[in-house]
Amino acid sequence: MEPQPLASVAADTTDPRAGLRAVTTLRTLADTLELAQVEAALRAGMNWQDIADALGVSRQAVHKKYSKRIDPTIHVPRRNP
């Protein structure tokens, strides 16, 4: 698959106010996609540690951020059953 030119004009700083707002939107997009991917990972059977490893953060960090946000119908295996 061809890589997307993710930020080919991101260095354009002629209108910093518009640029900053665009970065805020980019961050929102990243957050939305991250939540969708975390839910997909849990549905696929991955645990919090697997997700944390993939994201490059600690298990505690990813659990704190997403444990209450994910679709509550997703069955999440407990670490110590």
Partner: peptide, 12 residues
């Protein structure tokens, strides 16, 4: 805004 950053994706 995303297009201004060179991104061709849209919000879900």
């Amino acid at each position: 805004e995303l297009a201004a950053l060179g991104m061709s994706v849209r919000m879900p």
